[in-house]
Write a protein that binds this DNA or RNA. Sequence first.
RNA 1: GCGGGCGUGGCGGAACUGGUAGACGCGCCGGACUCAAAAUCCGGUUCCCCUUAAAGGAGUGUCGGUUCGAUUCCGACCGCCCGCACCA
Length: 876
Amino acid sequence: MDAPRYNAREAEQKWQKIWDESESFRTRNEDPRPKYYVLEMFPYPSGRIHMGHVRNYAMGDVVARFMRARGFNVLHPMGWDAFGLPAENAAVQNKTHPAIWTYSNIATMRAQLKSMGLSLDWSREIATCDPAYYKHQQKMFLDFLAAGLVDRKKSKVNWDPVDETVLANEQVIDGRGWRSGALVEQRELTQWFFKISTFAEDLLDSLDQLDRWPEKVRLMQRNWIGKSEGLSIRFALEPTSKLDAREVEVYTTRPDTLFGAKFLALAPDHPLALRAAERDPELAAFIAECHHRGTSEAAIETAEKRGYDTGLRARHPFDADWRLPVYVANFVLMDYGTGAIFGCPAHDQRDLEFANAYGLGNTPVVCPPGVDPAAFKITDTAYEGDGRLINSRFLDGLSTAAAREEVARRLEQVTFGNRPQGRRQINFRLRDWGISRQRYWGCPIPIIHCPECGVVPVPEADLPVELPRDVSFDAPGNPLDRHPTFKHVACPRCGGPARRETDTMDTFVDSSWYFLRFTDPWNAAEPTTEAAVEHWLPVDQYIGGIEHAILHLLYSRFFTRAMNMTGHADAVREPFAGLFTQGMVVHETYRAEDGSYLSPSEVSIETGPEGRRAFTRDAHLPVEIGAIEKMSKSKRNTVDPDEIIAAYGADTARWFMLSDSPPERDVIWTEEGVQAAGKFVQRVFRLVEELAGVAAPPDVLAPAEFSAAATKVRKAAHVALARVEEDLSRLRFNRAIAQLYDLSNKLSAAIGNVETAPVAADLRYAFREAADIFVRLFAPMMPHLAEERWARLGHATLVTEAPWPVAEKSLIVEDMIGLPVQVNGKKRADLVIERNADDAAIERAALALEGVRRALDGKAVKKVIIVPQRIVNVVA
RNA sequence: GCGGGCGUGGCGGAACUGGUAGACGCGCCGGACUCAAAAUCCGGUUCCCCUUAAAGGAGUGUCGGUUCGAUUCCGACCGCCCGCACCA
């Protein structure tokens, strides 16, 4: 007779239905148990889920099920990051409406996620493109505006000429649009900004408290915020008559190098530069060239430092007779510091390159430790480190730190035009967040522009400002901008004709607060419910890709602060207490002989002693196995989760996703790997079948004593329990899975050793206990199989609702322990001895071992090092 | 260029705060079952020497250091990956 096989397809659908009907994953806010909020980054409804989603949601689901079993009231919701450009692209290509495309994708992906058996509370599902969601976002925009957290300013924006939209700085990668890949141009537009820089200091300082975040992410945010402490110095200009400008302010973090200054340089957009250009066509041409190069050839621009001498001269703040030339230079940025610098070529590489190009020379003023000042010369490489000041008059001999302080102190005391000439200043690289997008499929900005009243907020009663459905994508640009009734409205204040804001919000706004909405998505009146937010936040464990290390996580941190200020999240500052960034799913690439990519389904792999070789499935032509890369459509190395679930079941897919690699690292999807996981599912099914055959029924009481064989079975189960618990607590899924392989090996062996029937009562009890523990341990990873086997073991309850078992300490601690014995650091023997043997007894026993005696070869023992419970080292 | 991380068998990876290197899985080799194959089960599998066993030697990118003892700590170098990129 064939062994019974587990039909995953049937069983999984059955249990999903049962969970659904029993509302196993419905979470109630008023549940008295301690709360635990686990969240995976919600997906963009692009069409179908991919393996990256499977990995992400499998991890979150293990955490949710594990914490639920441990007695927590777990919130584990799901939603859709549903606004965004691809819906509009699809609308153009397929002549479908973005809403129809989006909601149809949501339906598909929801069904796919459900087929994974995730323990999600679907009653809290939200989609950011739903007016019931973005209505609140509009309300908060107005509240932020009232609170001074929103700015409207003309600004140079990154314009993507292909997508015809503005991009945030973060969306520009190597001078190209992150989505279109088109070279980004600079345009001047009036834009809405969230004043994230208001919180720069707090966003930076609070990172220290996020001790359950990866250090890497915190560091990336630190660098992104980019705090620097320095000094603003105002330089007097000559001749003043020429431009009607008496001074220029520069920012420096190195005031100590002030006596090494050789020039001043202005950004091409600096007001002074622009004014000077009005009278100097050559300078105007130079500035135009800077703009041009800045946008078109970003790579080349980095190579060469270029400048233009304005003819202006600046007076050195400590020497009225010292004049510095004032250049406009292509490497000075307008939007950092004051848009102007003083150049100290000896101690700044960029300044040195510039000075060398224009023959400005250099004077070293900081001498590195251990170098003779008289012999210290700078030619091609600036010295940017610390040292002792030289050639610097009253600063000579000071350390760089002391010199910085001294310059700051003196310049703060010098008065220049009624104000101190120097001012200590802290600068951040962090820019305000430009949220205006010239796009249809986004949250409308609730503003009306009136020629009489100016910028008028849409009254709260008129919210939401809903996207009109009747739009066409036949022409490029924003359809809202040419929509007749949406655009032209009456001013809410004066009633006169006015124009509605047709820009929509960056989709990163939508995802900056969805985790708060999940706590009470039913509240129609307000974005959040105070009690619910206070109860659930912060998210205890957030899981997602490292690609959101800066943007999404920083914006969310801003949003909780802004919501906190405006009364929408009183109890929250930091949204995510624990963050985990999971690795990608990668796969081999395959190329046919003509170089074209082949998908895994077109390739068959043959393995032998000489390794793996690939052939086309149909014609058996040789296939080149290429690099292992992130799954992508262009490389054709994707695997469809639906097909895997259809062939092996969700439990197999989940198990494999979690088993092979540490979760923070990339996992390589292989056919062999998923097959192995599938085999294990079958093996577990059979193993529990066998265990059920020898196990006592659930209600049998523990016997007074256990035989050695029974104790061994119980030990295996309890040791695995303790380890799996530890590993799951620390999200080390791959180790937990290794433990479970190990336990199933041990249980198989134990059953193999059972020869006599009937099986003794104590052993039957031990098998029952071990089987129950085993099923509960793999339940978070393979929930359907666990239910199936839990029922087979005679339980009337759901394992999903069963509490986590408690490991018995006495079974984990061994009476006899094995101690490796080293001689001079090399292992020579094993010593088995009572756990609590004293050092003298251990030493005596160790020295008596045959292996130790042989290694000593008669040499005298100098010392014996005994590390309790660990190791013995005999030094000879 | 600056900042960060990582280098362990044929492969993915274990090894808690310095204490038995290679858990577990894949692959491979051998065996059982079978007419045969698949499936399943059992055994082996870091390398070298050895017919086997026992015993031994080498070994965590390279070189050096600290230590009774180093994959783990320190220094230099090599290689790979990620982030930022004229931020004054």
